[in-house]
Design a binder for these strands. Sequence first.
RNA 1: CGGGAUGUAGCGCAGCUUGGUAGCGCACCUCGCUUGGGACGAGGGGGUCGCACGUUCAAAUCGUGUCAUCCCGACCA
Length: 577
Amino acid sequence: MKMSKLFVQTQREFPADAEVISHKMLARAGYIKKLTSGVYNYLPLMWRVLKKVENIVREEMDKAGAQELLMPFVQPKELWEESGRWGAYGGELMRLKDRHGREMCLGPTHEEIITAIARDGLKSYKQLPVNLYQIQSKFRDERRPRFGLLRGREFIMKDAYSFAASQEDLDKEYKNMWQAYTNIFNRCGLATKAVQSDSGAIGGNVSHEFMVITDTDAGENDVFYCEECDYAANSNHAVSNLPEAIVDGSSYFTKNEIVDTPNCHSIEELSEFLKIPSSLILKSLIYIIDKEPVMALIRADKQAEETKLLNAAGGIDIRIASTAEIQELMDNQGFNAIPGFIGPKGMKNIKIITDNTVKEMKNFVVGINKNDVHQVGANLEDLGIDEINYADIRLVEAGEFCPQCGKPLKVTRGIEVGNIFQLGTKYSKPMNAVYLDADGKAKPYIMGCYGIGITRTAAAAVEAHHDEWGIKWPLSIAPYHVIVVPVSVKDEQQMSVANEIYEELLSNGVEAVIDDRDERPGVKFKDADLIGFPYRITVGKTITDGNVEFVTRSTGEKQVVKPDEAIKMVIDAVKNI
RNA sequence: CGGGAUGUAGCGCAGCUUGGUAGCGCACCUCGCUUGGGACGAGGGGGUCGCACGUUCAAAUCGUGUCAUCCCGACCA
């Protein structure tokens, strides 16, 4: 490709609306162009990158025995009603009507469709197990798209679905996909960590997320991991043991009584006023789960983890209650108390979820739905809760102890580029997707699903590989392998050597660009660095001695070599991708 | 969905307070000059000032509404 003809427009400045580095770089280097919020044009350079990621995914999936197909982007409401998700999926599902008023949606994922395909085509246990996948655009109407390709509304995803006749076969396929994913991300030049995670709206039991570990804002997930053993989990799933699990306030409070705590609206104010550690306070939080108020009780020095709480409550939608909603709840319960003084005592007809750590709290401090007082030296049994529902709803913190080996946990941030789920019969059962087993009985498939964000993987690669001058693509997913730069296109010797090198590279299957623009060398070098060609061969003044310059983008290393050597280095590198 | 901000050429921005023929830098076109890290000179093309309504002799500028975009929060693959 001649640089003069390549469809790309690099910018001198970063776009004003980009926040994270991958978005800034890809926009400035001319890879992407935003069409509307969370929706991007993939320009020719970007498309080459995406196709390379796709091909790596495709090769590894095929090697792992999966079969590719392609399902429609537009899906009918009926199938989503069969699975029960038309009502459950929420605003992220982009719904639309056709001219006849039939309701449809844009596919955010394809469990319903693939399950419908399977039940028509997989009638016998002899056909199982099977793994089917596609690579396709998805649409999820995010409330707040951000971070460019890392969290778009429309994005490209590889989604695979496995069907098995036994849990053993599902386990086998799960491990098989785990290995395929490890291979895929390695080949894309990304170091990933597989972490345990919550299975969220897609549902199921066992799941892992593949995280690219990053210390930037682009990493939206907190990952807790252990350096001593293999434990690693998303914050929405992590568990830990506390260093000081048992807390007892008996040294502060000689009896169980109600004391004045004027204007102590916050945990800090209360612990300061009573001169006690905040771990001796029982915190009562009000959440709205599926439109109903739910009270969460937790040790006040710890935070509630909303996903865990949601799962413990068995709901599908959670948010913290507003001050007005808390007010309304208090009114309904016949209390007059503002946040800070709320507690479980005397609450009627409300679900109360109590964190496990509260079991170990003795003689603590708690609000009693009365302003400017708290009960001290209290114990849970004093509070008259009808039924105590214990669950782990606590957000793990770094330094707490690993549940597997007891060593302190570390925390880091991660970009989720892939996930694997064991779905079980979550979709096959409601959709009556069954096969005939050897015993002649109809049984639902035991399913798994496995996703990889293609666009997110590409963006994560930029997050992981860049410097102040631009992108440093791994050779395996770079849009082109090398750029040949004649310093002056008017210098006949430089031009002819550059052309020879370029032609020789092309004829050896190397994806090369020649910068034939009549620009000053600074412009060409800046563009080459920004776009991120893994290798650059500069044909300039050293050509009079028969030499060219060979530059490796990832390391910045510059070597003065003969043209043949430069060509060989590139060909060898490309062979080893 | 709550809070905050911004919409002026492909990109980055000024002009708005105090209404009076729409500007700058980059990019783009032509000519000259230059050629190892985003040169320089001269000339040129490109904008319904997000949209609508209103106030006014006159609106990028003032008012109302609306749409879009971004940030913080909430939410979530």
